[in-house]
Design a protein around this nucleic acid. Structure first.
Length: 490
DNA sequence: ATAGGGTTAG
């Protein structure tokens, strides 16, 4: 605020500047600003405010701060201008308005500005603490959010629902179970357990910590779960691999007369494909049509994906052929559907027609070739890929390793291993499993073991351990398999 | 004269 105070000092001498010479002027300028805001011209509105040498009503500043942070605009320059004007002509603005400014800075991605403003506030209220805690938890500084939460209590401010909602946001970011349980305890103690937002966040956290029983208990205790609560529970069941329960919950949502979100549709549809539940998928399709969700991009591409994964490529194509449903995602779904059902030729035809491709599209095609052991096509495709795109990710590398394994080409595999090492892909589980599989398949058990011990053991991952164990067992080395199994247990 | 939660293709 140093600069602002200096400006204040200078302006205080010029009394005529701090008040409009004509009260009608302020009113007229306010009207102009409001007109610009109504037409969505935030920059213009702020610019007029910035050059007006007199204060405005506090509610105008509040509205401007909110607009600066509203989704899409993220106007940090404008937020700074509004703040500067506010402090210039109202050296001690009300606390709530400074809170709005903190929120605006945080939402524009400038945690530094938010923090500075908070620290320089002569007095704060609970809202100021909440604003900064929220700022930290949304800008990827969960630890600082926890620290502030403790400091807030020590400064004599009681946490409210908003505080806990933000703190839970940080808990979800770090997924620290014991910390979350402590916060949960406090929430119950303060009597906020029935709050929908807080309950939903707790469901989200316990679900992400893989404790579905607790998540479900908390969900059942929410008095009126809303669309987001239902979305969370469906999603968490899906991610736990309990597709059936996810679908059950999706249909229960209608009994509770809650209108689903489009994402809930897609989560439920992914659940259907995860357990090949075509009938339920068709039912959900019907519901989507009834509720007018079928022309939504996300829902229709999820439908295409569901039909494709359940093997009903005709229905998938039918939706795909409708206008407005062809985007990269649905293109990729359809290509993947044909590729993974063995019709790689048809998939390739569609792939070649794609107006736009990304890594996932390329991987989908490659995955088809590898699944059906079409190594020659896969190699040709890799050459094409190399000449067309620089976009490669851990999934591509995992697939390339599968190709090496399929061709029993350990030399190529070693080159890929070198590439993986140099480009920092080693930490990916997908790549690690690929390496392990490739070396095992090529009979290089020493290399496989090295990969396992150096990269994979600390993941405690079932897939990789099984890959190694089964290949040892296959080669009649069951005593070695047992040794490794014991080390793994340890 | 307010603030908080969830994200479709491999």
């Amino acid at each position: 605020m140093g600069g602002n105070s200096l400006l204040n000092l200078l302006l205080c001498d010029k009394g005529h500047l701090t008040k409009p010479s004509n009260p009608a002027t302020a009113k007229a300028v306010t009207t102009t600003i409001l007109n610009h805001l109504d037409s969505g011209r935030l920059r213009k509105a702020v610019s007029i405010l910035f050059y007006a040498p007199f204060p405005f009503h506090f509610s105008l500043y509040a509205r401007l701060f909110q607009l600066c942070s509203s989704t899409g605009s993220r106007a940090i320059v404008e937020a700074r201008k509004v703040e500067s004007h506010l402090f210039t002509f109202s050296p001690t603005p009300p606390v709530f308005l400074v809170n709005r400014a903190i929120e605006a800075f945080a939402k524009c991605g400038s945690l530094g500005d938010a923090r500075e403003l908070f620290e320089e506030m002569p007095q704060r209220d609970g809202g100021s603490w909440n604003a900064l805690i929220t700022a930290c938890s949304q800008s990827g500084s969960p630890e600082e959010a926890f620290r502030l939460f403790v400091k807030m209590s020590r400064s004599g401010f009681l946490p409210n629902e908003i505080t806990f909602a933000s703190v839970l946001g940080s808990c979800a970011a770090v997924l620290a179970l014991s910390l979350s349980r402590q916060v949960h305890g406090l929430i119950v103690k303060y009597g906020f357990g029935g709050n929908v937002v807080i309950g939903s966040s707790l469901v989200d956290i316990y679900g992400k910590c893989l404790i579905m029983d607790d998540a479900r208990k908390i969900f059942d205790e929410i008095k009126n779960p809303n669309d987001i609560s239902w979305n969370i529970i469906v999603r968490r069941y899906l991610e736990m691999g309990e597709g059936e329960e996810a679908i059950v919950m999706f249909f229960q949502m209608f009994k509770a007369a809650v209108r689903p979100l489009k994402f809930t549709f897609s989560n439920a549809l992914v659940a259907c494909s995860s357990i090949s539940a075509l009938d339920e998928g068709i039912q959900i399709h019907g519901v989507a049509i009834k509720m007018g969700f079928d022309d939504d991009e996300i829902v229709s591409s999820s439908l295409i994906d569901m039909y494709a994964k359940c093997g009903d490529l005709e229905s998938a194509s039918a939706i795909f052929d409708q206008p407005n449903s062809k985007d990269v995602i649905s293109w990729t779904s359809i290509v993947s559907g044909y590729a993974m059902s063995g019709q790689t030729w048809k998939a390739r035809e569609l792939f070649d027609e794609m107006p736009e491709r990304n890594v996932i599209s390329w991987n989908a095609m490659l995955a088809g070739y590898t699944r059906y052991s079409q190594w020659e096509e896969a190699v040709d495709f890799l050459f094409l890929m190399r000449n067309t795109t620089n976009n490669i990710d851990q999934v591509t590398l995992g697939l390339i390793l599968k190709v090496c394994a399929g061709l029993l080409d350990v030399e190529l595999g070693k080159q890929v291993h070198g590439f993986i090492y140099r480009h920092g892909f080693s930490s990916s589980m997908f790549v690690g499993n690929g390496l392990l599989h490739m070396y095992s398949k090529c009979g290089k058990m020493r290399s496989a073991k090295t990969v396992w011990f150096h990269q994979i053991s600390h993941w405690q991952d079932r897939v990789s351990s099984n890959a190694l164990l089964s290949s040892y067992a296959h080669r009649g080395r069951s005593e070695l398999a047992m040794t490794i199994f014991c080390e793994m247990q340890w």
